[in-house]
Simulated assay, not measured.
Amino acid sequence: MTIESSPRHLQLRDTLFRRWKTLGLGAGDRIESQNEIVRFCDFSLITVVKTLKDLESEGIIRRQVGKGSFLVQTPWAEAHWRIGFFYNRDTVGGGIFDNEFYTRLVMAFEKGVVSDGHEFIMGSFTHQRMPVGMWDALDAVVLTGFTGETRLEALGETSSQVSLIDASLDGDRFHSYRLDYGPAFAEMFRESGARRRTYLYLDSKFSSNEQAARLDAFRHAGAGTKVDQRLEIIAVNQETDVGNTDALKAAIEQVRPDVVCGHIHQAWRPLIRSIVPDAAIYPFLLDSAAPGFVVDTAGWMRTILPMIYAHLGDRQRPPAIHTYPARFRP
């Protein structure tokens, strides 16, 4: 039986649990009066009174004359949490397990959640559709893969706690766990010493806050060198059109870079080597001993997961952007 076809008092019960969960209410917190409930939802006073009496008889709320009603327990909360990881399949070309970066990210996240005794769920969304109904059944969802094309309305509709990983949105609406490549870029340029070198940065064609932040960090680090470096930038599709390398090949042939860095797909290495055999190649990497800008996912998860759990315990904490530094491996 769906919520829509269930009795009205059970529909109201679900609505109240969803609202209290979204507000992050816990045992001892005051809930709305019956008149306040009538005002914010489409239920009659008779239905509201019956629902509140049922909740009181079940020991979920306690009503005190002249003081109001208070939560005694939160039946939507369990001893363990159900935490989901959802990626944008319109952005991650070929699926998440065809993408080494995101594969390592989701595996590290799952390992951390399960090791902490919680339940892990993985899924996806698209630019146009997000599975809000599924998210409502979870305590928290961690999302990644936003671009300028992604519709965001659904993010405000779910009762699940929303966090963003390797992603952020304007307005600080959610806790965001970003990677900071600024220090790693600066270390790469310091390696040049007093030499002037040509750097070709492969910028992602997928417009997002993270894409823009990485490009800004690269430019800022390059501008801070003792010797002026030559910085060249080309936009690439490292996700959904990997085989189209004409523009990349032309840029490498024209620029003849000493360093190629940024959003480098593994399949492009032979092409780069065939044109500039001695060029250094520095891609974005997770848990790798290869040269590049490397993130230790175990350390990242040790930083992120306690924050997610704390925010579940206190969902009224103001959202913030949390950063974790990448390191440069020459």
Rank of each mutant, 00 (worst) to 15 (best):
A186F: 12
S44T: 04
W268R: 04
G117F: 00
E210M: 13
A298W: 04
V65I: 13
W300A: 14
D172C: 08
R63K: 09
T2Y: 11
R173Y: 14
V114S: 00
R89G: 12
D203I: 09
R62F: 15
Y102R: 08
E119K: 04
R63C: 07
K111E: 02
D216M: 12
R104K: 04
P7W: 14
A140Q: 04
F70W: 01
D136K: 08
G145V: 12
T198L: 03
E239S: 09
R151K: 04
Q128G: 08
D314K: 14
C41D: 07
E56S: 11
R197S: 11
V65H: 12
D136L: 07
T51S: 01
T2P: 12
T150W: 01
G182R: 14
A247E: 13
I96E: 03
M134V: 09
Q211I: 02
T158G: 06
R63I: 00
G68A: 07
I234G: 06
G93Y: 09
G26K: 09
K21D: 15
P277N: 11
F17W: 06
F146D: 02
T323I: 04
F86H: 02
V92P: 14
P325Y: 00
T51R: 02
W76L: 03
Y282A: 15
Y282R: 14
I121E: 01
L155V: 08
Q64N: 12
R273C: 05
S204F: 05
R256C: 11
V48C: 09
R190P: 00
A167L: 01
D216V: 06
Q128H: 10
V141P: 15
W135V: 11
D314N: 15
A250T: 10
K226W: 03
V236K: 05
K111M: 02
I304R: 03
R173P: 15
E4G: 11
H9N: 12
F174N: 00
S115E: 14
G156L: 07
S163N: 12
T158Y: 11
I165D: 00
V92F: 01
G66M: 00
R230K: 13
A140V: 08
L52T: 05
R104F: 05
V294G: 02
T22P: 01
A212D: 07
E157K: 13
V106S: 03
G224S: 14
T126A: 03
V236Y: 13
L152V: 03
F40A: 07
H263S: 15
M301T: 12
L45R: 15
L52S: 06
S274W: 12
D258T: 00
Q11G: 10
G26S: 14
H220D: 04
W76K: 02
